[in-house]
Structure formats: structure tokens, C-alpha cells
Design a protein around this nucleic acid. Sequence first.
DNA 1: CAAATTATTTAGATTAGTCTAAAATAAAAT
DNA 2: ATTTTATTTTAGACTAATCTAAATAATTTG
Lengths: 225, 225
Amino acid sequence: MSRHLSDTVEDYLKVIYNLSVESNRVSTGQIAEVLKVSPASVTDMVQRLAGEQPPLLDYLKHQGVALTEEGRKAALETIRHHRLLELFLHEILGYSWDQVYAEADRLEHVISEEFEERVAAVLGDPQRGLHGKPIPSRSLEMPDQNTCYLQDLRPDQRGIIHSVNDDDPGFLRFLESKGLIPGVEFAVIDFSPYDDNLRLKIKDKEQEIVLGTSVTAQVQVELKG
Amino acid sequence: MSRHLSDTVEDYLKVIYNLSVESNRVSTGQIAEVLKVSPASVTDMVQRLAGEQPPLLDYLKHQGVALTEEGRKAALETIRHHRLLELFLHEILGYSWDQVYAEADRLEHVISEEFEERVAAVLGDPQRGLHGKPIPSRSLEMPDQNTCYLQDLRPDQRGIIHSVNDDDPGFLRFLESKGLIPGVEFAVIDFSPYDDNLRLKIKDKEQEIVLGTSVTAQVQVELKG
DNA sequence: CAAATTATTTAGATTAGTCTAAAATAAAAT
DNA sequence: ATTTTATTTTAGACTAATCTAAATAATTTG
């Protein structure tokens, strides 16, 4: 079915997918920043990908890009690889949850469909990754998650940690030390205006914790009740 | 310790290592044939690798190349990756022995030292690969094997299948169907001149088998007694 | 040992992905 | 509604890895 895409192209599509969750069209500047390449390189690349047959991107000069259905499928394939690999590295090879990202990020471009299938089977066809994010299905359907960011909650609301960003090992170790792990229940105790800090009570933990937006904007939660 | 080498460079070094086992210096033409690139490309590349600091190859115009110690270490690193991966794909993910080569050949360039260590640990630090070839040690020592090619044996000699080439799935399925698997004992019954066919009796098998040189030149054995 | 054949190397070109610097466009601010 | 600022695009150039065609060196053969 799918023609071969280079590692680089897969990275572009993945980044565009992730940025698309927030805004409909994605600017070349945003992509450049995430991929740490120059804006000029991005313009070049998105023009190429928009010109492919069939096109992977929809591109309008000075108005950013959006994934085509083709591009979306390719991005989800890579994301499925990544999330299956993270789980695999943890479950089978004993990697810690802050270690898996870098390894999965290289392997995701290289494994075959066969490898993907076998890993999925060994893991029992998991629906969620090691950091809580949904894993696209074999047929590349992304289950829609009913979540919001922790930063949007206010006192007296209760929730469950749904998922966290996986790409910063230091941040992940911080989350672990605070007990902010997917599946954990918590309640918002206090909200502090101006700095937008949140005070949380985590289930089965004595000590309450206070978190700034640089944390609460990176954690997705499921509302309870 | 080691600077980063591209997948392509690792492939060149691996191929040169394998060809070096037979002849001391390796010709650009041989390399071109194995890698399926033009001889001109090989000349280009070997000149580059001989010019690196420190050099990975020793190159003399029109006289072929040899690996430097630096190049040999790099080749062994890749070979270690490959053989550990093949075993891993078989033992942990259930790949058959004719399926592992292609997957390992892509993954070998991408896995980290961490991955290598963990896989080696899970497999119990194996000394031999799935097809019998020795696995270079962590410190990149290649155990020297006391073997010869099956084609060099004559009637009444007995041996054990030591190792077989891993790169052709069809050939591997053929070997399996004949019971020619590393560790299996056999005796040479007959040698036929002109075509150099060998007749073998395989231990615990009723039927004797006759093999041509296109098979016997691809199988390494350990002499017994 | 010279001629013919074969192998290797050089020269010049191509593609993917990147860069910097300059030009063009869009957005923000006076 | 202009000017300023910020973003995006174009233009031109670089590197790694490859190619084909032509030139050169080595080897084989008569």
C-alpha cells in the first residue's frame, strides 16, 4: 500500500500531526522550532511533500500546512510504531519510562510491519502507551480521548492523570517523583491566580503538591464525576 | 569513544570485514558486487574512509583495501549488533531463522549501546548467533573459530555443522528441510569428482543426502575426532 | 612482450536534506 | 494608513551518496 518515506519525512509528518491537535493549520516556523532546523528548510520540505503524488500535505503560501488523509495515515503509522516500541522497551527490555523516548524515536522509522505486529501481539494489543497516550489501531484509527489539560481544572474538581509528554527524561523523572503517573487519582485543592499554580491532593499521598503551568500544561487528565 | 558512522559506512565496513576473511586485501569490484553499487561509488567511498582521521581503511590505488584497527572495531560492533538482534528476534519475538536477516540488517545501525547491553543480558550473553556464527564480545574480540568449509571434507570424515550463511531465506529453508542445522552431527559417505558433490549421513536421519558445491561452500563445519 | 581484455579510477552530474543571506509578504503598532 | 517588525519564501551553496561515461592502469593471452 504505502510507498517508502524517509526518516526525515516521517519526522516532519509526525511533528505536523502533533501540532495539528492544537491549531488547524500549522506554520512553517512552528515546525522549524520543533525539528530544530531553519524555517527555510521547512518551506522547502513542505513544498516537496505538498507536491508528491498523492500529496501528503496541503500547503498554502504564508498560511501554513495541514495533513492530507494520506499524510495523516503516514503520521499515525509512525506514532503507532513509537508508542508500541516505548511499551516494548519498558516491558520486555526493562527500560525506565524516562529512557524509552530516544530509543523509540530512532527505531520507529526502521521496524517492519512484521515487527510491529509481533510486538503488538507480545504486548497483548495495547490501546495506550507507556505515558498514557492512545496507540493508533492496526488500521490506523486514533481513538478519540475525552481529556483536557490539568491547567484547565479548578478547585474541587477531581480527575485521573491520563497522559504526559514523553520526550523530556528530566520532566518524566520529576513527574514520577511527585506521583503524577497515568491512572493516578487526584483532586484540585486550590488555584492561585497570576501565577496559575494549582495545588493538588494525590490519592494515597500525604503531602499536597503545588504545580506551575510549565507542568500543568504538559499533563492531560480525565475528569471524574 | 566512537564518532558516529552513517548506515552506509557501517555497511561498507561490514562487507569489507566479511570479504577480508578470505583474502587479505579486498578489491573495490568485490565490494561493489556485494553492495550492489557501481565500482565508481566504491572507489569514492573507500578513498573517503581511508582519508578519515583516524583512517578506517588502508587503501592503495588498484590494490584494494584492508581494514585498520579502527575500521575492524567498527565492523565488529555492527556485526555484534546484527547477531544479537537475529537471536533476539527469534527468541523473544518468534521470528523463524530465515526471517531474521532483513530485519536485523536494518536495526543493527540504529540500536544504542544500552539496547545492545539489555538484549545481550536478556539472552544470557550468548557466544554464538542463530546461524552458528560467533558473536563478537562486548569488548569486540572475535573468538577464533576452528572450522572449515563442508566442501573441503572427504569420505569417512565426521563433523558437526558449525554455521551457515544467514542472508538468503530460501537457502535457509532448504538447509532446514535437509536437517543441516548448526550443532547437528554428520559423516561424509561419498565424494564425487568433477561435480564435487558430497554424500552425507546425518545423525538420527534415515535418508542420506547429496549436496553440490553451491551448498557445501556455504556451510562451515567443525571436524570431529 | 605487445595487444587485447578486464578492472579501477577520474570527471562531471544528480538527489535529498540542509544551510545562510536576501527578498517578499503578512501582522502589529504608531 | 503608513511604518515597523516578524515571519515566510526564494536564491544560491554545501555534503553524502550515488550514477554514467571516459580515461587509465593492470592482467591475461596470443
